[in-house]
Design a protein around this nucleic acid. Sequence first.
DNA 1: AAGAGTTGGTTGAAGTGTAAACCACAGCCT
DNA 2: AGGCTGTGGTTTACACTTCAACCAACTCTT
Lengths: 156, 156
Amino acid sequence: MSDTGTARWLDGDQQASWRAFLSGTTRLFERLDRQLREHAGISLPEYEILVRLSEAPDRRLRMAELASSLAHSRSRVTHTVARLEAAGAVIRRACASDGRGVFALLTDEGMQMLVDAAPGHVGAVREYLVDIASPDDFEAVGRVFGATAEMLADDR
Amino acid sequence: MSDTGTARWLDGDQQASWRAFLSGTTRLFERLDRQLREHAGISLPEYEILVRLSEAPDRRLRMAELASSLAHSRSRVTHTVARLEAAGAVIRRACASDGRGVFALLTDEGMQMLVDAAPGHVGAVREYLVDIASPDDFEAVGRVFGATAEMLADDR
DNA sequence: AAGAGTTGGTTGAAGTGTAAACCACAGCCT
DNA sequence: AGGCTGTGGTTTACACTTCAACCAACTCTT
């Protein structure tokens, strides 16, 4: 924030887009979370962790890598992983090369939960977002929030 | 969801856009909330309620109108308004024409909180989102999430 | 006018996220 | 080696959201 003069409000179109964004994302996240809970018994943040782990070498990641990859606080990742561990989807293991470090690693059971959850989740993402946007518009979404993400990257 | 055959995954570009969106919105909301709390002592959801009230005739709205306008649950609005009332920003008043109804109405103090908070908030929305997107791209964002919002409108 | 069903709103508890203090270890630097 | 300083992670308490149950009042139907 470096505005020194009078406030620069949003114009009508910007205002409309901003509010559509707020309303759309609120509804979208609520729906995606509900869909996952009902069909797979996990929340959206939990699902995202399973995805990251499934893609990682040896299906394991350091807690801090999970946190920065998801843009979640370390504390939040600790809590979420604790729940996933209680559910049998993940195991914690000490890191050999760094005495402070902790790996979260995906169990076979966790992998199975992900495999079961993924089609329905992706279907919902398509149905409520991707498939109702034109390809160009959806690419624009990617550009815009890519820029935002980069700008706000990890200086908490 | 009406997919009967094999799962239709996102292609590479769609996947990238989707993850940029997740990461960008997570960081954006976190930043906007923090900015408001530090500079104005209110949260983002609280701010949104003050905005809606300030725009309404007589600066008052029914609880249910607030809820559907914000895409928040009734329960959530009850809690949030309770906090705002405790802070002196809002007053509850029974509705004359509907014995069940409750109006939330913005006090002068609440209006002043909004006036104080708005420039910094809008500045942050510009800095982290609007001003780093091209006008066309930001309009695309509005179209996409407008469609999502409409599709997911109030059948909870 | 009397129920039956619906809507508006609140409540309290349980679940999830944030904040801040804290410990343990790593990486310097001398 | 000894002492800073920073990083990785957890913990506790607190704040916010969701959930389910609930009551009151409206509406519709008969």
